[in-house]
Lab assay of single mutants.
Amino acid sequence: MIINNLKLIREKKKISQSELAALLEVSRQTINGIEKNKYNASLQLALKIAYYLNTPLEDIFQWQ
Score class of each variant (00 low, 15 high):
18 S>D: 13
55 T>S: 09
27 S>G: 06
43 L>G: 07
6 L>E: 00
14 K>Y: 05
64 Q>T: 10
13 K>I: 07
56 P>M: 03
36 K>W: 07
10 R>T: 03
11 E>P: 01
37 N>K: 09
54 N>S: 12
51 Y>C: 13
2 I>S: 09
9 I>W: 06
26 V>A: 02
5 N>Y: 06
33 G>R: 14
10 R>M: 05
12 K>F: 09
54 N>T: 08
47 L>Y: 11
33 G>T: 06
14 K>S: 09
4 N>H: 04
34 I>C: 04
33 G>A: 15
62 Q>L: 08
29 Q>R: 13
31 I>S: 00
12 K>T: 11
9 I>S: 02
6 L>A: 01
19 E>V: 08
63 W>S: 07
34 I>D: 01
13 K>Q: 13
36 K>T: 15
1 M>T: 11
61 F>S: 01
64 Q>G: 13
25 E>W: 05
33 G>E: 15
14 K>C: 13
15 I>N: 01
50 A>S: 12
12 K>N: 11
7 K>N: 04
54 N>L: 04
48 K>T: 04
9 I>M: 07
32 N>R: 15
20 L>T: 00
21 A>W: 04
17 Q>R: 07
1 M>F: 12
61 F>K: 02
13 K>C: 12
59 D>F: 08
40 N>A: 13
30 T>F: 13
29 Q>M: 09
16 S>Q: 04
30 T>A: 07
54 N>M: 08
39 Y>K: 12
63 W>M: 07
28 R>G: 06
20 L>E: 00
20 L>R: 00
43 L>I: 12
62 Q>P: 12
47 L>N: 12
5 N>I: 06
32 N>A: 15
19 E>A: 13
49 I>Y: 00
52 Y>I: 15
32 N>P: 01
21 A>Q: 00
17 Q>P: 03
3 I>R: 11
18 S>Y: 11
2 I>D: 04
35 E>I: 03
55 T>P: 02
40 N>T: 15
31 I>D: 01
27 S>K: 08
34 I>L: 09
25 E>I: 06
35 E>M: 03
21 A>D: 00
31 I>R: 01
24 L>W: 02
37 N>C: 13
8 L>N: 13
13 K>M: 13
37 N>D: 07
62 Q>C: 10
24 L>T: 13
45 L>G: 00
22 A>R: 13
36 K>D: 13
29 Q>W: 12
18 S>E: 14
34 I>S: 01
53 L>T: 01
51 Y>I: 09
39 Y>G: 06
60 I>G: 03
59 D>Y: 09
33 G>C: 15
64 Q>I: 06
27 S>M: 02
47 L>A: 10
56 P>N: 08
40 N>E: 11
24 L>K: 00
25 E>H: 15
25 E>D: 14
37 N>L: 07
7 K>D: 03
52 Y>P: 00
40 N>V: 14
4 N>Q: 03
25 E>L: 11
10 R>N: 01
64 Q>H: 12
1 M>G: 08
32 N>E: 15
57 L>Y: 06
31 I>G: 00
64 Q>M: 07
56 P>V: 03
43 L>W: 12
9 I>P: 01
44 Q>L: 09
32 N>M: 13
48 K>G: 06
16 S>R: 07
49 I>P: 00
46 A>K: 11
52 Y>E: 06
20 L>I: 03
46 A>L: 12
12 K>Q: 14
45 L>Q: 06
63 W>N: 05
3 I>F: 10
64 Q>A: 14
49 I>R: 00
64 Q>N: 12
16 S>K: 09
26 V>S: 01
23 L>K: 12
9 I>V: 11
15 I>R: 02
19 E>D: 11
17 Q>H: 03
64 Q>S: 14
6 L>F: 01
58 E>T: 11
6 L>T: 01
15 I>D: 00
10 R>L: 07
4 N>W: 08
29 Q>C: 14
43 L>S: 07
13 K>R: 11
35 E>W: 01
